[in-house]
Every structure is written in structure tokens, then in C-alpha cells.
Design a protein around this nucleic acid. Structure first.
Lengths: 144, 144
DNA sequence: CCAATTTAGTGGCACTTGCAACCAGATATT
DNA sequence: AATATCTGGTTGCAAGTGCCACTAAATTGG
């Protein structure tokens, strides 16, 4: 009964949901949802990319990114222009409005991670971050 | 740019979503969704509990549990009886049908964790599980 | 004992996500 | 060059979740 992996699985769910609640709260002051905030971060980090790149980086379904990106364009955080070389794809770039919130949003994400790992020592936190990255890369690679 | 905590946050999201996709796939053969499977596990572990206990254990909103539990009752995995001492609450107990899938479902959850931590050594996996538990307990305690 | 507060559970709405079907443009095969 | 296949993106639908407002029962304070 109640073995370790069972609980580890539940823990991932709990951490995901709680951290997203916190991020939503933290981003509400910028009129952004957590899901939108994450996309803004990645678009600012790359400065110019396609929806497909975002999809692969975040491990989300392409339809989800399509919806979030068009919403963010609508509310003025991104611009999409048809790529000249491949007319199927968009070049997505941040607007000034995105750059204005970039650092603030990143801070909210960091705060969520601090809060999530609040019972940990600094070295545990670092190890936790390392293992999370390792697992996530594996999970993305796993489904080809 | 692209700092560690930022990526750790994204990693949690990726792991959550991928693991739930895997669990859904693994539980489909028992005509259960991943969300239902997790509730069956906890109800079998406790043998008898209230919706409120499930809510607290899983860190989910009480309305979510209400919906999942009534669905599971409808399809015959649980029974709810009004508690004699406190007429607001239900006593929730697993049926034979739940016990029949219990071990199989637990195995699916374990498989998901193995798959999720596939790039890790055994000691990394154990440490990862420990840190996940620690963080999740903190996250549940954090919002009082 | 009665009023106020707390607690367990429900129902409605909105957001996020995944999946499947689809379309249009690009690439490969012949 | 024509056809087939692949790829990036869109749309509609369904499930999971969170929040809010609500009800009914229990508990607390006068």
C-alpha cells in the first residue's frame, strides 16, 4: 500500500497544479494567465520562432499553442508574420508590451519555484532542479 | 535568460502532462481515465473515507472530487453512504470492481514513474522521489 | 436555546489541455 | 511535371481542473 512511486506520481500532480495556481495569481496583475506568461517567456527568449518550436519546447499539443498564440496576438503581446520561405509557418516575435512584462513575469516563475521548494535546502533545491530537467528531457525525447 | 528555475518550472509542467497522457493510455484497458484511477487508488488505500479527505490528500478542489466520485459511483467502482454521525458527509468505500483493478492500476502508476525517470540511475530516482514528496507536502501545507 | 459561523458537498462557468479531422503549402518519388 | 507524402497550423469537441455561489448540516458563542 501507499508506496513511494505512487506518492511521487501524486506529488508531481500536486506541484503542477499548485504552481499554476500561484503563477495565475502572480500574473493576474499583468492581465495574463499563467499559460500565456510561459509562452511570452519563451518568445522573448528566442526573439523570433515558429509555433512548432514553441510546441516542441513546451511539450504541448500544437493546437494548444495555436490558441494561446492567437490570443496573445489579439491582446497585443506578439506579432505573427507569414514566413517568406515557408508560407505555412508564422514568424512570431514579441512586441514592446511583451518586453515590458518579461522580467516581471520571469520573476513570478522564479517565485513559484522558490515557493514550491520552500522546505528544501539550497543544495536540495539545485539537485531537484537538475533532476527535473533530466526527467523532462527524457519525457520529451521518449515520445519521439 | 533561460535560467534554471524557469526551466525547472517548465519541466514540472512537461512531466505532469506527459505522465497523465501515459496513465490515461495505460488505464484505458480498464475503462478508466487517469484521474479516476488515482481516486480509486486512494479509496482502496484508505478503505473508507470522505470526499474531503480525498480533496486534502490530492490537493484538488473539492468540486473536482465531487464530480469524479459521483462518476465512479455511477460506473460501479465506489459506493457512497450517508454518514450517520454527520449527515453532510458520505462514507466512500471501494466495491469489488475497484479491488479487482487496484493492483493493476497501481502498476500503471508505477510504470509512469519509471518512464518519467527513465534517464536516471536508481539512486537519482530515489532522491527525486524524496524531493518530490518533500516539495508536495510543503505545497499542500503552504496554502493552509 | 437561538443566531452566527464553519464545514461538506453540489452546480455552473471558464480556462487549459489533448485528440482527431482537416487544410494548405512543402518535399519526395516516379 | 504529376502524384503522394509530410509538415505547420486551425477548428471542434471532450475531459480535467479551479473558482464562485449556493445548500444543508454541524459547531460555536451568547
Amino acid at each position: 500500500m501507499s508506496n513511494i512511486t505512487d506518492n511521487a506520481f501524486k506529488s508531481i500532480s500536486i506541484l503542477y497544479r499548485k504552481s499554476h495556481i500561484w503563477l495565475n495569481e502572480g500574473c493576474a496583475q499583468y492581465a495574463l494567465t499563467g499559460a500565456q506568461a510561459v509562452v511570452i517567456l519563451i518568445v522573448c527568449d528566442f526573439e523570433m520562432l515558429t509555433q512548432d518550436t514553441i510546441t516542441k519546447r513546451l511539450g504541448l499539443d500544437k493546437s494548444v499553442i495555436a490558441k494561446t498564440v492567437s490570443k496573445l496576438e489579439e491582446i497585443g503581446f506578439l506579432v505573427r508574420t507569414t514566413n517568406a520561405k515557408d508560407k505555412r509557418t508564422y514568424d512570431i516575435r514579441p512586441t514592446q508590451k511583451a518586453w515590458d512584462v518579461y522580467a516581471l513575469v520571469k520573476e513570478q516563475v522564479d517565485l513559484c519555484f522558490q515557493r514550491m521548494t520552500q522546505p528544501m535546502t539550497d543544495s536540495e533545491r539545485a539537485e531537484f532542479a537538475r533532476l527535473l530537467l533530466l526527467a523532462a528531457e527524457g519525457a520529451i525525447a521518449a515520445d519521439d
